[in-house]
Nucleic acid binder design. Structure first.
Length: 689
DNA sequence: AACTTGTCAATTTTT
DNA sequence: TTGACAAGTT
């Protein structure tokens, strides 16, 4: 196969430049994935062993996508040898291979997912409150967890943390609270013999910076490094790359500074803007030919991008001509905005535009509701992108808790979760007594529960509940041994606790119950499949749970079918990397896009985003469209019960008239109404005459 | 321990 | 207006 036949000149250059650091500035729709896959194929052709080639991306979805595309080029076997994954999955892999190098005692460590972290922080916060620091206010757990995560990724240790003198007047002082909880958090995680997501990257960096022997060992294993979506890397990830990069410095990063939208999560645009500073002598290449959108859409996109100052200069172009000019639509209020979008979609569908080629994009999740209602009313099928991740769903976590209890009797977090689902009359107080007793006897909770009678100061009723639960576990373990299957043991337990009935009780509609139960079934299938794959050896549950925590999409894809033929609703963030023929960006108003946090003059705290990032978000939305683009807004909007007059987004006012056609739904409707009046008049006039 | 009522706040999200 | 979460009731 001729590797280069389907590449343009710039792409070819990017594929062929394999020595030394390279930055490929790949504009939206310029074929960056193609560059990466072809580059890998080229390296393989040159005889580089697959396992010396590392390609990192941000999401599992992107990694899987890349693997699929490479498989078709070089075959499944060769592709299987490549190191393809996310920063986190590579980190986890390295830790499993050499736990001691990275400060772990065994390869059997667990990876805490967001839910676990939230639980830990919540617990610590309660303790912190009890110590009378006046922290009995309600805190947003996420805000604290996020701060800790940001610190970890900047390598800020608690000892270095200075008390910030400039705290704002109103609201709780999150920096102070997070700082107070931070050291205890680190201790708890270490105490559990676990790592959180951030550790998967940071621990590798810290260890390799300290241990030069390990560092050269790892550097020798990987001779070619590639990183996708480089504009979204943070400090820790930059150092991760630097730590792994050998003396040959064969690094190729691909990204688009115009699409950097994760600054709020700690991503540093500076990594891509100052690439040749971090990697001196770097070659910088630009991919500017766009294969996705029609010229009028690109014209608009280029104008938006050019408003930003901190960027690499570039402009997209296409050789395809024709296409419709984007339309900026105003409606009198939010309701009518949704209705107009709904009507327009219906119109498109009757014009034989495929439903899965239409998307409605918005700044924040709350905006989806109005559209969802409208689409339901009009009987249009849709799917909402993003949403709650599979493994964060309550019922899935509940089932997972049972799995963990069965395979790891000393997993305290799981034990606590399993105990309280379904509610069986065992609360925090009873559990605390049990935990104290267990600690005293140096037993796990699972063992201690068999001696529940020994608990002092616990009512008989609770003792009975505990014994019941203990019996359930014993029974389940016996079942697992007899059937040689954990999956089947879990199924048994779920029957005994009537989880399905429980879900029904919590949910209400039978449709929703079914949806949630499907999640449970999908998970059980996943567990069973994992077990079967391990036949012979004993299943390595730590690895399974690790991959679950890292968000393997296996179950999900199993669950998702029939997503075709639906229109897509998504936040601008989750739309990145995707494309549709027709795109609606709704709520193009100040305080929505750009978001209030950055549009209002008094919002200038360190955590707040910046206006340029909001503009890039707008840019991302625009560049998702292939054929047609609608930018809608409402003149008034009901907000917290009050109707508020809205200002058009400043991003719209930056656009020259000719690149965007204005369309006012109100005047059009007025005209229609006026026309009808005239008709009525002539009708009446005829009678009179 | 489970259910009910009241208060406060109000992006974006992956791993 | 919704929703999450904590305090208050049963």
């Amino acid at each position: 196969m001729d590797l280069f036949a389907r590449l343009n000149l710039a792409q070819r250059d990017a594929v062929l430049t394999i020595d030394g650091p390279v930055l490929v500035l790949a504009g939206a729709g310029s074929g960056k994935t193609r560059v990466i896959t072809h580059r890998i194929a080229y390296l393989l052709e040159l005889g580089v062993p697959p396992d010396a080639i590392v390609a990192l991306s941000f999401t599992n979805r992107a990694a899987e996508e890349m693997r699929k595309r490479i498989e078709t080029m070089v075959g499944t076997n060769t592709a299987a040898g490549l190191v393809l994954g996310t920063f986190h999955s590579l980190g986890a892999q390295m830790m499993r291979q050499e736990p001691h190098t990275f400060g772990l005692t065994s390869r059997r460590f667990s990876i805490l997912d967001q839910g676990d972290v939230y639980g830990l922080v919540r617990g610590l916060l309660q303790e912190y409150g009890h110590h009378g620091h006046g922290a009995d206010r309600r805190f947003d757990i996420g805000a604290i967890a996020q701060r800790i995560s940001l610190w970890k990724n900047e390598f800020v240790v608690p000892e270095v943390l200075q008390r910030t003198s400039a705290k704002r007047e109103e609201g709780p002082d999150y920096d102070a609270v997070a700082a107070a909880v931070y050291p205890a958090y680190l201790e708890r995680v270490a105490g559990l013999g676990a790592v959180d997501f951030d550790d998967l990257v940071c621990k590798i960096v810290l260890a390799l910076q300290r241990d030069h022997i390990a560092r050269s060992r790892w550097q020798a294993r990987f001779s070619y490094l590639m990183v996708d979506e480089y504009q979204d890397t943070n400090r820790a990830q930059l150092e991760f790359i630097q730590a792994l990069l050998g003396p040959d410095r064969n690094l190729c990063v691909v990204g688009d500074d115009d699409q950097a939208i994760y600054g709020w999560r700690g991503a540093k645009v500076a990594n891509i803007l100052g690439f040749d500073m971090y990697f001196p002598g770097a070659k910088i290449l630009k991919l500017e030919e766009n294969y996705r959108s029609r010229a009028p859409i690109l014209t608009l996109a280029n104008i938006v991008a050019r408003q930003n100052s901190g960027r690499h200069d570039k402009a997209l172009f296409t050789s395809k001509d024709g296409g419709q000019v984007p339309v900026a639509v105003v409606t009198p209020d939010g309701d009518q905005e949704a209705r107009w979008v709904g009507r327009k979609i219906r119109e498109l569908l009757t014009d034989r535009v495929r439903a899965d080629e239409i998307a409605v994009l918005y700044r924040s999740v709350v905006q989806s509701r109005a559209i969802e209602e409208q689409l339901r009313e009009q009987g249009i099928a849709y799917r909402v992108l993003g949403g709650q991740p599979f493994f964060d769903r309550k019922e899935v976590k509940d089932v997972l808790a049972y799995l963990r209890v069965l395979v790891f009797p000393n997993d305290e977090l799981a034990f606590r979760r399993a105990v309280e689902t379904p509610p069986r009359g065992i609360g925090p107080k009873t559990l605390d007594s049990l935990a104290t007793h267990a600690a005293m006897m140096s037993m796990t909770l699972s063992e201690a529960i068999d001696h529940a009678e020994a608990l002092v100061g616990v009512p008989a009723r609770q003792i009975a509940s505990l014994r019941n639960f203990g019996e359930l576990l014993t029974e389940a373990r016996a079942h697992a041994r007899a059937q040689r299957s954990i999956a089947s043991a879990i199924r048994h337990v779920l029957g005994r606790i009537a989880l399905r009935t429980q879900i029904e009780k919590e949910t209400g509609s039978s449709e929703a119950t079914q949806a949630r139960w499907n999640g449970v079934e999908a998970l059980l299938d996943g567990v069973a499949r994992f077990e079967q794959r391990q036949l012979g050896g004993k299943p390595r549950w730590h690895e399974y749970l690790g991959s679950v925590a890292l968000g393997s999409r296996e179950q999900e894809s199993h669950e998702q079918h029939g997503e075709l033929g639906k229109i897509t609703l998504a936040t601008l963030h989750s739309a990145k990397g995707l494309e549709w023929d027709v795109v609606f960006v709704i709520g193009c108003e100040d305080d929505v896009l750009p978001h209030r946090r950055v549009s209002s003059p008094r919002a200038t705290d360190a955590m707040g985003g910046d206006l340029e990032e909001e503009r890039r978000l707008f840019y991302v939305g625009i560049t998702r469209a292939r054929e047609q683009l609608f930018l809608t807004r409402a003149a008034n909007r009901v907000e917290r019960g009050r109707e508020i007059a809205r200002t058009p987004s400043r991003f719209l006012s930056e656009l020259p008239k000719e690149v965007c056609e204005a369309y006012d739904v109100a005047t059009r409707e007025e005209m229609t109404a006026a026309a009808m009046l005239t008709m009525a008049d002539t009708f009446l006039a005829r009678f009179k005459g």
